[in-house]
């Protein structure tokens, strides 16, 4: 009986260690596959480019589109607006997805047509925004909104450099973040609050009109 007990103990220990080994392997695989994925995205960029430029003319239709990877600030903005709408709708799962989409389009953003100074500033903004978007893709909604606040600042700074073909509104809710306030960008003048969603849908004001 003693022997059986010993054998069982050894088995349990071994099983745990083996599980750990396989976990580690699985992790590496996962990393590999994400790399492939992003490479694929980069490849996909060129093919989508034309398609997306043609869309630049009818802004009104853009809301539903979440195209990724054509490497312009417009695509980044569109993905940001989609994410904002998901937060307005209190939709955690959708915001997760769209956060991931935004992270991809940020990574694909090609800054080479800007001057050196602007490039380094844009890269800084992109790096920061990407991290926030990635966090949004894996968080609960309260945490998503925290990151969205800083992400919004990054987007404001980005538009400052890149400009935009459409009219956008910088809006502000003074109550968010323990009354420290939070700003965001929107394509519509009407207030739809991404920080409180349904709780205070119309809280906020237009701070500034861009374009």
């Amino acid at each position: 009986m003693k022997k059986v007990k010993l054998v069982t103990t050894i088995m349990v220990m071994a099983f745990i260690s083996l599980t750990a080994v396989s976990c580690k392997d699985a992790k590496t695989d996962k990393n590999d596959s994400t790399e492939h994925h992003s490479e694929m995205n980069a490849d996909g960029d060129h093919s989508k480019m034309n398609h997306d430029n043609s869309d630049g003319h009818h802004d009104g239709d853009k809301k539903e589109m979440a195209m990724n990877g054509n490497g312009t600030s417009q695509v980044v903005l569109n993905d940001y607006f989609n994410l904002k709408d998901a937060l307005v709708a209190d939709d955690n799962a959708k915001a997760k997805n769209l956060g991931g989409t935004l992270a991809k389009s940020l990574k694909a953003f090609d800054t080479s047509k800007y001057s050196d100074d602007k490039q380094s500033e844009l890269k800084d903004i992109i790096e920061d925004a990407t991290e926030h978007a990635e966090h949004i893709s894996e968080s609960d909604i309260a945490h998503q909104r925290e990151h969205f606040k800083v992400l919004s600042k990054d987007m404001v700074d980005m538009v400052e450099i890149t400009g935009t073909s459409m009219t956008i509104y910088q809006q502000y809710c003074p109550m968010y973040d323990n009354n420290k306030g939070g700003a965001w960008l929107s394509m519509n003048k009407e207030i739809r609050n991404p920080y409180f969603g349904d709780k205070m849908l119309k809280c906020g004001k237009v701070q500034r009109e861009i374009n």
Partner: peptide
Amino acid sequence: IVKIIAWIALIALVAI
């Protein structure tokens, strides 16, 4: 068979 598995597992644990 239990014994064999246990031995293999033990060896794996030592090996890692």
